[in-house]
Write a protein that binds this DNA or RNA. Structure first.
Length: 836
DNA sequence: GAGTTTGAAACT
DNA sequence: CAGTTTCAAACTC
């Protein structure tokens, strides 16, 4: 029917034109067969009309690994182009506004990529007689507003929609060419195009996208920036994934048009979105960059671009604004996390990697961390926003909620997101200025402020380290110092990006995991009821452990001197603390929990919490220990969930008892987290990874099933994005948190057993570690049982993504102790595959 | 706000 | 790997 071949060119209208061919019976036959209208016959012919690849288009961006983002070689683009073109072709023939929009974008992107070569794709568009680009754009806009339904998933669905779509407007050749030229001028266009897609799907993805955008924008100067901005804004503001995507695209299109016309384009829908989130986004970008080394380069370039472009850029550009180190976070840095987590990246966990380590962040994604909340998260690119959103929405989904344990970070960080964002902007300026405002506070407040910003981001007070050592929480979190930091001789600023990067590299050379989130979270799924908010008490947000463990001797792990305590996580066997009385979980408990999970001696361990006993148990279950106990292993996990901002919060897992850990597969589960973390490493960030909203997460726990389901779907999508970030590419330490986060989500999704979700909130369900390697999957917070049926579908989807993604992830260092290098092999993609 | 305590990071 | 020093946060007054 649709056979690509037949449909195409032959279309009836064309047939008349091609006299010779027409005559042939074959031709007529073909023409008859083709269902497609010959609107753009010529164009269609060129492409592969038969192939409907809209999905591919969406997918492709995601597939691109993080690293690739930074590098984003032409080859990758070419590939994308191919897909895009294919999709384009299909689209052009096809139809639908939404689709059309997408197609246009893709086509544009493709054209940009190819630049010279790309024309073909453009040409196709041009060929289409009917509409003008403007029309198309308008249509798109309409679609956006109109089509709420569009969702990330929609990307996949889009193909389906294509059928529905009809009357695709086409761009005039002139307009197309103009676009082409513009695009050629800046490669960014391509990137921008890709963004939207990713943005939709996941926060992490967004963060990544953001980075990409930034880079692109840098290159492109004007257009690209705007586009990226749009995406970010869209993500933040729009709950609906669909809307986001389209809008971003629309903006992009509009910008392009504007560029053509030379008019300052008012950003229609997108514009308003942008306004809200601009600052955040910028911040987010920067933070993330920090978190992600890869991103860093991008950031740098961005800066340059920004500097150059500042004057030029239109109102909408977020990028123009220097990426703030963010207090606010980028989410990933977020915000979500502050770096990822927003809140602040406390030193722990923030690390960029995660992206989103945490984030958002982004980054660092990362983010994020970082879903109902996802929506929120996704919506806000910045770490700050992320958090807030997450909180508000509750974080639904994700682990974020689980992560949250402690109120401290949560409350603080979450509340002031808006303010923070503002602060973040200030950061660009010199510190001094920023501090002033905060200083006015009372001593107590001052103190709080000194360490944390309202946003939840940490503020350092370094005097001698120049904020280039891990002593500096900001630096350790992979974020730039904010204006409100009280540091002296600070070099941890965008102005010294190179220095920062170099220093980071040095430190990483020493300890690849130095910037990895310190707290590894173990997410446990909530019971459905919990997810509903019915019974939170039962909810076990997540278990987390400090990656390296503490060495407290006098504080008994009851004060913030203790990193474990500070992160609201229990001490693990990896801790060398003396007299541990950590309220979040004592040393022995963790090991015991493991044992318990293992199913061996569970009673013993559970019964006796004494550290000694635990230790003993742990010793018994030697194997388990290795996987679970090893703090290092754990660390990897955290990144995923953690948000840059709050390591603590995000990481903060409740350990009501070691029991959480248990799962029949306990061993696996733990391990899995590990794996995840490792994956996260790849990311380097999520960051901010991950959006964490400690408090919010709690609230989020209560998320409605719908949210959860949505989160799942997102997660799955995110996951796809994760593949984009090639874990392998990253040096061990660098892992986009966001990715990690995603990974975790995906993992949860992955769990084959939707049943699990259905089942009790028991952690077991939530996590399944497939791989021997310990890859673990962090489940989305709560899985709404209600949706179980639907969820199952979601899960399926997620799995698909996961599978794809898994291979992509490079072995993450986290799995292995930093000290013991051996680990990485485990994280290798292969192992992951095994998990499947 | 100054000083002390604490433990991580950095160094040897 | 262990010991020491440096550093900055946490804490106390």
């Amino acid at each position: 029917m649709d056979s690509p071949e037949s449909s195409p060119p032959a279309s009836t209208s064309n047939a008349s034109e091609t006299a010779p061919v027409e005559d042939s019976p074959v031709f007529s036959y073909i023409s008859n067969l083709s269902p497609l209208q010959p609107v753009k016959s010529s164009s269609v012919t060129q492409g592969f009309p038969g192939l409907n690849s809209p999905p591919l288009v969406f997918a492709s961006p995601q597939l691109i690994p993080h690293k690739s983002r930074a590098q984003f070689s032409r080859t990758s683009f070419d590939k994308l182009q191919v897909r895009l073109e294919d999709s384009k072709n299909s689209v052009t023939t096809d139809k639908g506004h939404g689709e059309q929009n997408i197609q246009l974008n893709t086509s544009i992107a493709a054209s940009t990529e190819k630049s010279s070569d790309s024309n073909s794709s453009v040409d196709e568009l041009i060929q289409s007689p009917s509409g003008s680009c403007e029309q198309v754009l308008e249509d798109i806009v309409n679609v956006d507003s109109s089509d709420p339904n569009f969702s990330f998933d929609s990307t996949i669905k889009k193909s389906e929609r294509n059928d529905q779509l009809a009357n695709a407007p086409t761009c005039s050749t002139e307009t197309v060419e103009n676009f082409r030229h513009e695009l050629n001028s800046g490669i960014t266009g391509e990137l921008a195009v890709t963004h939207p897609f990713t943005c939709k799907e996941t926060e992490d993805a967004q963060t990544e996208l953001i980075l990409i955008n930034a880079s692109a924008s840098e290159k492109a100067m004007g257009q690209g920036d705007e586009v990226s901005v749009n995406c970010s804004t869209v993500g933040t503001e729009l709950p609906a994934n669909n809307a986001v995507v389209y809008r971003s695209e629309d903006n992009f299109m509009t910008e392009l048009q504007n560029a053509k016309t030379g008019q300052a384009a008012p950003l229609d829908q997108s514009s308003h979105l942008l306004t809200g989130s601009k600052a955040f986004q910028n911040r987010g970008v920067r933070r993330r960059c920090l978190q992600f080394e890869n991103a860093q380069h991008n950031i740098i370039s961005n800066r340059l671009a920004q500097d150059t472009s500042d004057g030029e850029k239109p109102k909408t550009r977020f990028l123009e604004t220097p990426l703030m180190p963010i207090d606010g976070k980028l989410y990933p840095q977020n915000t979500l996390n502050s770096s990822i987590k927003l809140p602040k990246p406390s030193g722990f966990g923030l690390h960029l990697n995660s992206i989103l380590n945490t984030v958002q962040a982004g980054s660092a994604a990362t983010i994020n961390v970082k879903t109902a909340q996802w929506d929120c998260v996704s919506a806000t690119t910045d770490g700050n926003t992320h958090e807030t959103h997450a909180c508000a929405s509750d974080g639904s989904s994700l682990s974020l909620a689980t992560n949250v344990v402690e109120p401290d970070n949560n409350s603080v960080t979450l509340n002031s997101n808006s303010n923070q964002s503002i602060l973040g902007n200030k950061r660009n300026t010199e510190k001094g200025s920023g501090l002033e405002g905060t200083n006015n506070l009372s001593p107590k407040k001052k103190r709080m402020n000194t360490t944390e910003s309202d946003d939840g981001y940490k503020r350092c007070n370094c005097k001698r380290s120049k904020c280039l050592k891990l002593y500096c929480d900001c630096f350790a979190a992979g974020i730039y110092c904010a204006d409100d930091c009280s540091c002296q001789e600070c070099f941890n600023r965008p102005d010294y990006e190179e220095t920062v990067i170099e220093t980071r590299q040095k430190i990483e050379s020493r300890d690849p995991f130095a910037f990895a989130p310190r707290v590894v979270q173990h997410i446990i799924e909530q019971s459905p009821s919990v997810s509903r908010g019915e019974d939170r008490s039962n909810f076990t947000p997540a278990s987390a452990r400090h990656k390296k463990g503490c060495k407290c001797k006098k504080s008994m792990c009851l004060k913030k001197y203790c990193e474990c305590y500070q992160a609201n996580v229990g001490c693990s066997d990896g801790c060398r603390c003396e007299g541990c009385k950590n309220v979040f979980g004592q040393k022995g408990e963790y090991g015991m929990a493991k044992v318990f999970l293992a199913g061996e001696d569970s009673q013993e361990t559970t019964d006796d919490l004494s550290a000694e006993k635990c230790e003993i148990d742990a010793s018994r279950s030697h194997t388990y220990h290795i996987e679970f106990v090893n703090p290092n292993n754990l660390t990897p996990l955290t990144p995923a969930f953690q948000f840059p901002n709050h390591e603590k919060d995000g990481s903060a897992a409740w350990f009501p008892s070691g029991k959480h850990f248990q799962s029949p597969e306990s061993g696996l589960t733990y391990a899995s987290p590990y794996a995840m973390s490792s994956a996260s490493h790849n990311i380097s960030a999520n960051n901010a990874v991950i959006p964490e909203s400690s408090k919010e997460s709690r609230h989020g726990n209560g998320n409605t099933v719908d949210e959860l389901s949505a989160a799942r779907s997102r997660s799955s999508l995110v996951w796809q994005g994760s593949p984009i970030t090639p874990m392998a590419e990253f040096s061990g330490s660098k892992v986009p948190q966001e990715d990690v986060f995603e990974f975790g989500l995906s993992n949860t999704v992955q769990d084959d057993t939707p049943e699990i979700l259905k089942d009790s909130p028991t952690p077991l369900n939530t996590v399944k570690a497939n791989s021997p390697n310990r890859k673990r999957v962090s489940p989305p917070h709560g899985q709404p049982h209600e949706h179980t049926s639907s969820s199952s579908a979601d899960l399926r989807i997620a799995r698909k993504f996961i599978l794809k993604a898994v291979p992509s992830f490079p072995p993450l260092t986290p799995c292995i102790d930093s000290k013991t290098l051996a680990v990485q092999p485990d994280s290798s993609p292969e192992n992951r595959d095994d998990n499947k």
